[in-house]
C-alpha cells in the first residue's frame, strides 16, 4: 500500500508542479512538489523506499521538462541521503522542520541543477537571474514542503501505513 501511495503522490505531484503557476518576481521558481514528495519519503521511510521515491520523482521532473534524464534523480537522491543522515537529530513530524528542510533542499537542488545545465551548455550563466531564482527556490520550498508533508502524511495515516506521526 505504501508503494501505491508513493506512485499516486508522485503522479499528482508531477501534475501539480506542471499546472501550478510560477513566480516571475522570484526567477520563475517552480513549486517543488516532486522534491517535497521525495523529501517526505527521505524523512519517514527506509533507504530503499527513499531512493525509489527520489529516483522516480527526478525521472518524472526530467521527463516533463527539457532537463536530461537522470540529472534531477541524482540531485534528489543526494539530498534525500543527506536528509536521512540527519533525520534522527530533528523533529521528523514538526512543520518547522519541513519548512527549513524544504527551503534548504530546494535551494541545493536549484543550485545543483543550474550548475549541471550551465556545464552542459544548456542554459547561460546569468548571476542576477540565479540570485532571484535562489530566493524563489528558498521561499517556494519553505511554503510547499510542509503542505505536501501534511497531505501525504494524512493519506498514510488513514490507510494505516503510519500511525499518527510514527512510522
Amino acid at each position: 500500500m505504501s508503494a501505491l501511495v508513493m506512485i499516486f503522490a508522485l503522479l499528482c505531484g508531477a501534475t501539480a508542479q506542471a499546472v501550478l503557476p510560477s513566480w516571475t518576481l522570484l526567477g520563475i521558481a517552480r513549486p517543488p512538489v516532486l522534491l517535497s514528495v521525495a523529501l517526505y519519503y527521505a524523512m519517514t521511510r527506509d533507504r530503499e523506499m527513499m531512493l525509489t521515491a527520489a529516483v522516480l520523482a527526478g525521472l518524472l521532473q526530467d521527463a516533463l521538462s527539457l532537463i536530461p534524464l537522470g540529472y534531477s534523480s541524482v540531485l534528489f537522491s543526494l539530498v534525500s541521503l543527506m536528509v536521512a543522515r540527519f533525520r534522527d537529530l530533528v523533529f521528523v513530524f514538526r512543520a518547522i522542520t519541513h519548512l527549513i528542510l524544504g527551503a534548504l533542499a530546494n535551494a541545493v537542488v536549484t543550485l545543483g541543477l543550474g550548475a549541471l545545465l550551465v556545464l552542459n551548455g544548456q542554459i547561460a550563466f546569468y548571476t542576477p537571474g540565479l540570485l532571484s531564482r535562489l530566493t524563489g527556490a528558498l521561499l517556494a520550498g519553505a511554503l510547499l514542503a510542509p503542505l505536501i508533508f501534511r497531505l501525504i502524511e494524512f493519506i498514510d495515516v488513514h490507510l494505516g501505513n503510519i500511525e499518527g506521526g510514527v512510522v
Binding site: A18, G27, R30, D62, L64, S65, S72
Partner: peptide, 14 residues
Amino acid sequence: VIARDVGGWWHTLR
C-alpha cells in the same frame, strides 16, 4: 495548453 515546464529553467509549455 496542458502544462508548463516543471523545471522552470526554460520558457516552454506543453
